[in-house]
Simulated assay, not measured.
Amino acid sequence: MFRTLVFSFFKLTSLIFIVSNVHAHSIEAVVAKIKPSVVGVGLYDALGAQTHQLRGTGFVFGDGSLVATNYHVVSHDLDPKVVQYHIVFSGSGRAPNIHRAEIIAKDPIHDLAILKLDTKLTPVVLASDEMLNDGAEVLLTGFPIGAILGLFPATHRGIVAASSPDVIPSVNSNMLSNKLLEKLKNPYLIYQLDITAYPGNSGSPLYNADNGEVVGVLNKVFIKESKETVLEKPSGISYAIPIKYLKVLANGANL
């Protein structure tokens, strides 16, 4: 009897190890597939302290010439008196490729923007419009702390915690802005995530850990204390815009 129990336990633990190992290899393959499509989004400023400034993350989709990111990443008004234009960084390492880009569609309400490249890169596969269930395992890849040492995309892993209205609760009424009040009137559902992200992850693709299909666009993190402490004390709570809103934006612009 004892031998039978020991043997059964050994078979069970071996099976668990095999399943876990297969899942780990599956995630590795999914991340490797997504990485070539993840790009940095920034600004070229001829007179800036840094001429090539990385401001967030984006990802290639469609025919390979389109880049999705957050509207707030590219909402900076270009100075007509200075040579400034939007740029996209592709590749990885200390010498990434730099492409000039043009904003061709934007949706400030859903914090989305689409840029056009004069070249084609590897596009992601967009998921269906159906929302993921709570508890679904997801990944995001981007540039959490910028490109101080070069362009090195980092991947974070987590789950969908909830589908909740796009309104982060305010501590008191003094923090209620006109924009926030408007959202309270017309809320729409976004993904609340149990995943660690940082400011540089804005625009990162949120994708299904099983097949790599992009289900959303990361657009903000919940800050526990202040913006100055977000790097050393991350809340682990992040938010992403469902991919259906990117599709609506692209279709509306006939892309």
Rank of each mutant, 00 (worst) to 15 (best):
K11R: 08
K11T: 04
K11G: 00
K11C: 13
K11W: 04
K11S: 10
L12H: 13
L12Q: 11
L12K: 13
L12D: 04
L12S: 11
L12V: 05
T13L: 12
T13E: 08
T13Y: 06
T13A: 02
T13C: 05
T13S: 09
S14C: 08
S14V: 04
L15Q: 12
L15W: 05
L15A: 13
L15F: 11
I16M: 08
I16K: 12
I16P: 00
I16C: 12
I16Y: 13
I16L: 14
F17L: 12
F17Q: 11
F17M: 02
F17G: 00
F17N: 09
I18M: 11
I18V: 12
I18H: 03
I18C: 09
V19P: 00
V19Y: 08
V19S: 03
V19D: 06
S20Q: 14
S20V: 05
S20E: 12
S20G: 01
S20D: 13
N21M: 06
N21C: 11
N21S: 15
N21G: 05
V22M: 09
V22A: 11
V22I: 15
V22T: 08
H23A: 14
H23C: 03
H23F: 11
H23W: 09
H23K: 14
H23E: 14
A24R: 11
A24Q: 11
H25N: 12
H25V: 09
S26A: 13
S26R: 12
S26E: 13
S26F: 01
S26M: 11
S26W: 01
I27N: 06
I27S: 02
I27D: 10
I27K: 12
E28Y: 01
E28R: 13
E28S: 14
E28G: 15
E28I: 01
E28Q: 12
A29Q: 14
A29G: 07
A29C: 09
A29D: 14
V30I: 15
V30P: 01
V30C: 04
V30W: 01
V31G: 04
V31F: 05
A32Q: 15
A32K: 14
A32H: 09
A32E: 15
A32G: 14
K33W: 07
K33I: 00
K33A: 13
K33Y: 10
K33D: 15
K33E: 15
I34P: 01
I34Y: 03
I34C: 04
I34F: 07
I34V: 15
K35E: 14
K35I: 15
K35D: 10
K35S: 12
P36K: 07
P36F: 05
P36T: 08
P36A: 08
P36S: 08
P36W: 08
S37L: 07
S37M: 03
S37E: 06
S37R: 02
S37K: 02
V38K: 04
V38P: 08
V38Q: 05
V38I: 06
V39A: 06
V39Y: 03
V39P: 06
V39H: 06
V39I: 09
V39S: 07
G40E: 01
G40W: 02
G40Q: 04
V41A: 03
V41C: 05
V41K: 01
V41T: 09
V41P: 06
G42F: 03
G42H: 09
G42N: 10
G42L: 07
L43R: 11
L43W: 10
L43C: 09
L43K: 14
L43H: 09
L43E: 07
L43M: 10
L43V: 08
Y44A: 12
Y44R: 05
Y44K: 06
Y44E: 13
D45A: 11
D45V: 03
D45P: 03
